[in-house]
């Protein structure tokens, strides 16, 4: 049960890498076998801890990409100046072990009983916890209507592209490409602003529930615009990744 998973002590444990999948040039999905996994909720994250030979420890948080009930999967974007992500995206292989603790967080989560309609707004790798929410919705047979607006630099930077090209019934997916659009591109172009949001968002009269995830500047701009458009702040959940990359 998700509720019981939130209680009790949070301890570091060793997970085994089952497989690593290439999502984009800089993004990998890492499938893990976590022996004592208590189950998670859509939108939660884990902490990963790397310890080098002289004892130096680096910890980072990564959102869980898989739905509750699926094996734990993390989708990680390589940050060139990162201490942890280059190891995860470039070095990690099936059979390797990884220290983690989780699941963590009760704030940026969605369960079918939270309802909707859902407005999911992703910048770059901010799509990861929202993908967990989408899969959870589908696996639980929820009919909550969803609109996803996903901002990427280029088409090649779109994570889960094949999956998002075939959304479940009741899910509408909108893309915007900020840096380069391929010939014949039918999606949006440019950064998410008030005009773009006005075309995509649910009217406030439907009491939508919004989840915004991505780099800090993306989340701040989008969540402020939503609030200015009449979304109550308590219906706009945010998860900032820090940094500026990816959108």
């Amino acid at each position: 049960m998700a509720g019981t998973a939130l209680r009790g002590r949070l301890t570091w444990q060793v997970a085994k890498v089952l497989a690593v999948a290439v999502e984009t040039a800089s993004v990998r999905t890492i499938m893990l076998d976590v022996p004592d996994w208590p189950g998670h909720q859509a939108g939660q994250h884990v902490d990963i801890r790397l310890t080098d030979e002289d004892g130096y420890v680096a910890e980072r948080s990564y959102s869980i990409a898989s739905a509750p009930g699926e094996p734990v999967a993390l989708t990680v974007e390589r940050l060139d100046d990162g201490e942890v992500s280059p190891y995860l995206t470039d070095e990690l292989r099936a059979g390797d072990e990884l220290e983690l603790r989780g699941p963590i967080g009760g704030y940026f989560v969605w369960e079918p009983e939270n309802g909707g309609p859902l407005l999911l707004l992703a910048g770059g790798s901010g799509i990861v916890p929202l993908r967990s929410i989408l899969r959870h919705r589908e696996r639980t047979g929820s009919a909550v209507p969803v609109r996803l607006l996903y901002s990427s630099r280029t088409l090649d930077d779109v994570i889960y592209r094949a999956e998002l090209d075939k959304p479940a019934a009741g899910v509408e997916v909108f893309h915007t490409l900020t840096r380069h659009q391929p010939p014949g591109w039918s999606g949006y172009a440019g950064r998410v602003d008030a005009a773009l949001l006005a075309e995509v968002v649910w009217p406030t009269s439907m009491t939508p529930l919004a989840y915004v995830c991505g780099p800090t500047n993306f989340v701040e701009a989008v969540s402020q615009t939503l609030v200015q458009a009449g979304y109550p702040p308590q219906r706009v959940k945010t998860e900032r990744f820090g940094g500026t990359g990816g959108t």
């Binding site: 939130l6 209680r7 949070l10 963590i104 967080g105 009760g106 704030y107 940026f108 998860e239 900032r240």
Partner: peptide
């Protein structure tokens, strides 16, 4: 410096307070 959300330190808070704190 960019801020992140309290949610991001859910693990640290759990370690300190002994329970999930992000909805407190």
């Amino acid at each position: 410096m960019d801020a992140v959300d309290g949610n991001a330190i859910g693990g640290l808070l759990h370690e300190v307070f002994g329970s999930e704190m992000t909805t407190t």
